[in-house]
Design a protein around this nucleic acid. Sequence first.
DNA 1: AAGGCGGGGAA
DNA 2: TTCCCAGCCTT
Length: 306
Amino acid sequence: MNRHGDRRGLARALGSWFAQEARELPWRSEAPGGVGAWAVLVSEFMLQQTQVERVLPRFLEWMRRWPLPSRLAAEEPGEAVRAWGRLGYPRRALWLHGAATEIANEHGDVVPRDVETLLGLTGVGPYTARAVAAFAYGERHPVVDTNTRRVIARLVRGRAAAGPPRAGDLDDMAALLPDDPVEARVFNAAAMELGAVVCTARAPRCEECPVSEWCEWRGAGYPDNAPAKRPTQARFEGSDRQARGRIMALLRSAAAPVPRSEALRAAQGPAGSRAKAVDPAQPRRVYDSLLADGLLVEFEGRARLP
DNA sequence: AAGGCGGGGAA
DNA sequence: TTCCCAGCCTT
């Protein structure tokens, strides 16, 4: 913390800003009617690498259809994948179905409360486990996502950006967290919200920032001192990811299993738009990868969702 | 520690 | 085009 005050002042300023300005999102417990841990878990799975605006309609649809883990567990996994739509990373749908099954069968249809048990669910990592414990149950844990990492990097470390995840990220957040669990919960949510709407990656709106007087990056004159960025992601066009997505789109829309040949053809995209330098091995490769991931099941030469 | 994994929106 | 997004899993 810097010259402008202790961490309690920071938490107070951030907390009042959050109370005033936070977006109303249906998975926040404060929302009318309140939501339970199951809703928090579903939202956190969907929000992994996917923006809030895209998640909103899917989340509402899921909660209407599967208000309890056991309701989802009663479905075929493929139904979860189908209802996942185009959110991306469809393995998350599979993992969420698996988590629902385990919760229904082994935890009395109640989402676990402690971080260790949550971490045991496939698809639940350090962020999601603490987010559920903190937001759904009010447990006092540091919750660190990409927004929070950037806020800490600027506010505390005086850097323009966060850089790749570090082992100390959780400790950094823990050092800022108010002692009172209720305040800590707000602080976690507020740090994420600040990073999402004010302290943004691209063009931060520092003039609107409620905690600018605590900001080391501002104090240093906004130096362009961003640490090395993570390696740039390979282009999507023509990638295996795109080819996988095309097969998945076909399987989601299909009312019945489709011939394998049709799925392989779908991997190449619409006939008119095929790239010139196609990898002839790509369709088979991505088809097999979907098989290995359990996103595709083959039976008598036909492919379908699991 | 590094690479793979969707897809869309914004600069 | 490139960057970024309420990450996680495998190797």
